[in-house]
Computed example of a mutant assay.
Amino acid sequence: MNGVELFLLGRTLMKIGEEAMPTEGLREYSTSVRSVLIVASDIVENPGSAVGEIATRTGLPQSRVSGCVARLREAGAIASEPDPADRRRVLIRQAPDASDRVDLVRSTTIDPALAAALGTDDPDDVAGVVASLETLARRLTPGTLSRLRPASGRSRTSARD
């Protein structure tokens, strides 16, 4: 496998993941699932951040981060509080307790979306691919990306790329 094949596999996996997200009862949003997940991940890794800081780290426009934060707040996934050092800023962190929406997202399996993408109804085939993905997920966590970054701590790419 080369870098292009890996990149395309990653894109395919992201699309399957987006398809697996439960959407029942949700209204239309201007923010994509991908952007929301990027912002949510950054908030978990960097609790107590302001929108501008999240935008800088993720490479997403500040307006998109603000939209994602609003969506995450509506879902009960985050909490915010005024910055004690600057009351004009709001600091964002993961909500202490999971909301019903967060619980639903966490409990929904990828099996139906994966079966559709694979074009199979064979549960053993789907289970085999899920097991492979679970192995990759354990080995390649978001934290492993830090080993790819140059010594300066800056990534060669951003979330926009």
Rank of each mutant, 00 (worst) to 15 (best):
I54A: 01
G76E: 00
C68T: 05
L37R: 10
D97Y: 07
G10K: 00
R57H: 14
A40W: 12
R71H: 11
V90A: 10
E74K: 03
P84D: 05
M14H: 08
D83K: 06
R11H: 09
E53H: 06
R64M: 08
G25P: 06
Q62N: 09
R101P: 04
T58I: 04
L26V: 07
S49I: 02
G59T: 08
M21Y: 08
A50P: 02
V65C: 06
L9R: 06
I38N: 02
E45T: 11
L104E: 15
A85M: 09
V102I: 15
K15Q: 13
R106T: 01
S32P: 02
S107W: 04
S99M: 08
G10P: 03
P61E: 13
L72E: 04
D86A: 08
P84G: 07
V44R: 15
V51P: 02
E74V: 00
Y29I: 04
V65A: 03
T56E: 14
V51L: 06
V36M: 14
L13E: 05
S41H: 09
A70H: 04
F7T: 01
E24N: 12
A85H: 10
A55L: 01
P47M: 05
D111L: 07
R87D: 15
A70L: 04
L91K: 09
R73V: 02
T109V: 13
D86E: 10
E74N: 02
L26C: 10
S49M: 07
L91A: 07
V51I: 13
S32D: 01
R106M: 10
S107C: 11
I78M: 01
V44N: 12
P96L: 10
L13K: 03
E45Y: 11
E81D: 07
G48H: 03
A75H: 01
A79P: 01
A40C: 07
I92D: 02
V39Y: 03
S107Q: 15
A20T: 06
R87F: 06
A75V: 00
L60T: 05
S49G: 08
Y29G: 12
E81H: 05
A98Y: 08
D97T: 15
L91I: 07
A40H: 14
S35T: 15
A79T: 12
E28H: 12
V90K: 12
L26F: 09
I110N: 04
R106W: 01
L114Y: 06
L13D: 06
A79C: 10
T12M: 11
G67M: 02
I110M: 13
S107T: 14
R71M: 06
I38A: 06
A75W: 05
R27N: 07
P96A: 14
P112I: 11
V33W: 11
S80L: 13
R11W: 09
D111I: 06
L114P: 05
S35N: 14
L26R: 13
T108F: 05
V105C: 01
G10M: 04
V39T: 15
A55E: 04
P96W: 01
L9E: 03
G17N: 12
Y29C: 10
A79Q: 12
E18V: 13
R88D: 09
E28G: 05
N46S: 15
